[in-house]
Design a protein around this nucleic acid. Structure first.
Length: 569
DNA sequence: GATTTCACGTA
DNA sequence: CGTACGTGAAATCC
């Protein structure tokens, strides 16, 4: 079989790649198609090590397939991930991507099984991924290339064609001045973050299964043997609340309406029964305290209980869920199976395996530091030189640190109520460039114009829901845009950090097992812990430079080596 | 049966 | 002090 170099591939150059769960693999270099029939995984592994091309894939599915076969590629260009960057939003199916890149009418989007005038499939060569009308052939979109390495290679070729259009679109956005940063660099980092996501999903988060079962049992009882046992355990928990009420009141604690009516009967009138609203009313009636305790246990029982453990924690003690490198809004990573909203009380059961530790690092005060970078505010940049950014801000504003913190956050998030107004005016005087940056974003949002983050992600203003009764839809869009410019840029920097750590891990053999917006958790053999601590810091500096070479902003990490996730901080 | 609302955990 | 996400159960819509 010819090597990629024989086909004309260059180091770091685009090489198309399609890999199906059934093992079908095809690659493409320029117009050359290469079906891989004999040990395709071995071929890809050698090519990745020797040439390190930028593998171009339609979707993260490709990476998932390869990881399942034990292959972890170095870098990629994920067409779906870049599509989200370019166009915003979440939907990124190949047919839709292709249509938007080729300027095709979306109403003509191919649908599998749809008949048309050409007699079923749009006509033309059924082995070609592109129909005569320019749209992708629906059979290819839905996996029609599986089983045929030849068709896989042709499919890979279309991914490269899409990637090339994406590159010119990103470059054009930069030239038009729509993007302050380097959108091509963002696209590469966002793509490689998808590789990391595939690995996170495969590796899972180490859990002490026995400790987890014991903890859940202490809160909701042992795993029920049948539905009757589950019902009686539920009734037992309910009884702790109901005993504070007249017998036979027939309250369903799981029904907010019932609970609201019940509270009114004991003299507590509330618009809703949310915990923060009831928090201060624990003394009003003993049922309030009982209800709030019940809610906490109920959360464990329903969402993080025995069922959850059985469903998401494997025999090997790994908690696994699907990961996405970007949500549909500002572009933060998302995770399922509760990985991103694990209650703090469950963190003690997140434990490193014997002979291993966690190196846990989070970015300190990431959002104001990112604001300093993307806005270019010299005074705020100066404040980032301090370990605690809020101290110099407090000095400059002439207020307490706590007030300074509220003022900074209020400015970034578009506070509409509260008492930070005075300090906010101080912010305008002290950090005019940063405040102007935020005001510009808010104004665009209010006007319904979609802004781009520093790295180039389009933040779509179409689908912002009306922020309840606190203001108009325009005000809600303003807050959304203001927040997304900071949150989104922070997500971009975070992902550059994460993929840099992944790339530089080398022989230390550590694995990133959790990404939590500003926090990385690395599982590594104990003897390499100190090296990983140093690596995380080194990679942050490298990432900050790659992300924004001239910002002059100082970023800081809080890093610790721990046996359990709960031991950190 | 599908969608929306409420509630609550994380950042 | 705002935004976003995932989740489960009830309420509501069709």
């Amino acid at each position: 079989m010819p090597s990629l170099v024989d086909l004309g591939a260059e180091r770091g150059g685009l090489v198309g790649l399609a890999a199906a769960p059934d093992g079908t693999v095809g690659v493409s270099v320029g117009d050359r198609l290469l079906p891989l029939v004999d040990d395709p995984i071995g071929y890809l592994a050698r090519a990745d090590a020797e040439l390190r091309p930028r593998w171009v894939c339609w979707t993260p599915e490709t990476a998932a397939v390869l990881v399942a076969h034990g292959l972890r590629l170095t870098t990629c260009w994920d067409v779906a991930a870049v599509h989200r960057l370019l166009f915003g939003g979440w939907r990124a199916e190949p047919a839709r991507i292709w249509a938007s890149l080729q300027g095709l009418d979306r109403r003509g989007l191919p649908v599998l099984g749809q008949l048309d005038l050409m007699g079923g499939d749009g006509g033309g060569d059924p082995d070609a991924p592109v129909r005569p009308d320019g749209h992708l052939r629906p059979e290819f979109v839905s996996g029609g290339w599986w089983g045929s390495p030849q068709r896989a290679a042709a499919w890979a070729r279309t991914a490269v064609l899409a990637a090339e259009v994406q590159q010119s679109r990103l470059a054009a956005a930069k030239e038009r001045g729509e993007v302050a940063g380097d959108p091509l660099a963002t696209a590469r980092a966002e793509s490689t973050a998808e590789l990391l996501c595939a690995e996170l999903a495969a590796d899972g988060l180490p859990i002490d299964r026995a400790a987890a079962t014991a903890l859940v049992t202490s809160i909701v009882g042992p795993p029920p043997s049948d539905e009757a046992a589950a019902a009686s355990a539920r009734a037992e928990r309910d009884a702790d609340v109901l005993r504070h009420l007249p017998p036979g009141s027939g309250i369903d604690l799981r029904s907010p309406n019932d609970v609201k009516a019940m509270l009114r009967r004991v003299g507590i009138d509330v618009p809703d029964t949310r915990a923060w609203r009831l928090e201060g009313m624990r003394d009003a009636h003993p049922v309030v305290d009982a209800l709030l305790r019940w809610r906490k246990a109920e959360r464990i029982a329903t969402t993080f209980g025995h069922l959850w453990l059985a469903e998401h924690v494997g025999e090997d003690g790994r908690l696994r869920g699907a990961w996405s490198a970007s949500d549909g809004a500002a572009g933060r990573m998302t995770a399922q199976a509760g990985l991103h909203n694990l209650p703090a009380e469950l963190r003690p059961v997140v434990k490193a395996e014997p002979g291993y530790v966690f190196v846990r690092a989070d970015l300190g005060q990431i959002e104001p530091r990112v604001l300093a970078a993307v806005s270019g505010d010299a005074a705020l940049r100066a404040a980032t030189q301090d370990d605690d950014l809020y101290l110099p801000v407090a000095t400059r504003l002439g207020v307490e640190r706590s007030v300074a913190k509220i003022a900074v956050l209020a400015a970034m998030y578009g506070q509409t109520s509260g008492t930070a107004g005075q300090a906010l005016r101080g912010m305008e005087a002290a950090y005019p460039v940063a405040i102007q940056y935020l005001a510009d974003a808010a104004r665009m949002g209010q006007a319904g114009i979609s802004p781009r983050t520093y790295g180039g992600r389009l933040v779509r203003m179409g689908e912002v829901q009306d922020g309840d009764h606190r203001g108009t839809a325009a005000a809600a869009r303003g807050r959304y845009a203001r927040n997304a410019m900071v949150q989104g840029a922070a997500a971009e920097l975070f992902k550059v950090w994460a993929v840099t750590v992944r790339a530089r891990m080398g022989d230390l053999d550590g694995r990133i097992v959790l990404c939590l917006h500003d926090e990385l958790l690395v599982h590594v053999r104990t003897e390499h812990a100190d090296d990983v601590v140093a690596l995380l810091d080194r990679c942050l500096h490298e990432a900050a430079y790659r992300w924004h070479p001239t910002s002059g902003v100082r970023f800081v990490t809080d890093t610790s080596v721990v046996a359990s996730w709960a031991d950190a901080k």
